[in-house]
Amino acid sequence: MTDQVMMDVQGLEIRFGGVVAAAGINFQIYEGRNLAIIGPNGAGKTTFLNMCTGYLKPHAGKIIYEGEDVAGIGPRKLVKKGVARAFQIPQLFAEHSVRENILMAVAAASGYEAPLTRLEDISGASEADRILEMLKCSNLAERPVQELPEGQRKLIDIGVALALKPRLLFLDEPTSGVASTEKFAILEIIAEALEEENVTSVFVEHDEGIVERFADEVAVWNRGEVLYRGTPQDILTHPDVIRDVMGGHV
C-alpha cells in the first residue's frame, strides 16, 4: 500500500434529468489499495465507475490520471492508458470460446493486427493460457462462454480485463449473481490474480463479508455523494453506516 494518488477525482457532477447521480464528488484512488465502494441501490456507484472508465462524460469536474484530465475521453483511450473494467453483467463475445475471448484482448493490447495471422498464432498467445491458469479456468479454455455459469463468466470477464495489462481495474459487483457458497472462492482467485499482476482495484460490492475480507479501504456512497471513507473495520461498524446503508444489520 502506498500514499501515491493514482486517480484524483475533482468536483465530479452528473445528472440524469432531475436525478443527481454525482454531486460534486472529490475523491482519490491510491495506488496499491483495494478500494470497495458500498451504498444502497441508486446511490451512484456504477455511474461513478462509468465516468472513471470513460463510458459517461461528467457535466462538470475533472478526473486526473497520470497528470492528465481524462474525464469523457472514452473507454478506448483510457484502456490504452492502463484503466480497465469488468462489468456487473459480464461483457463477453458470446460466439467465441473462453480462450478466444482472452486472446482477442491480448491481441488488442499488443496492437497486433497483421491481417493474415490466425488469432491463435499471435505472438502473445501463451499469455492467454497464463491468465486462464492464474484464474484457475484452464479447463474451460475451449468452451463457448455462453455455456458457462455466471461465476465463471465473471472470472473470464475479469481475465479479459487483466489481459489488457491494466494498472487500475474497476470491478462492478464482481460477485453479484454468484451462488453464496462460491462468492469467497471466486473473490479469493480474483484477489490473488490482482496481487500477482500488481493491479490496483476499485470494486462495487453489497456483501459486507466480502468487503471486510478483501478491501483495504471502503467508501460509502449515497445520493451521488461520498459519505464516509475508512478501513473496513471502521466503516462496517459505524452506526450511521449500519443504519443507513446496511439496513440496520451487520
Binding site: P75, R76, A94, E95, M104, A108, A109
Partner: peptide
C-alpha cells in the same frame, strides 16, 4: 455482432 461495448473496452 456480439458485443461492441466490450470491444470498446478492449481499446478497439
Amino acid at each position: 455482432k456480439s458485443n461492441e461495448v466490450r470491444l470498446e473496452y478492449l481499446g478497439v
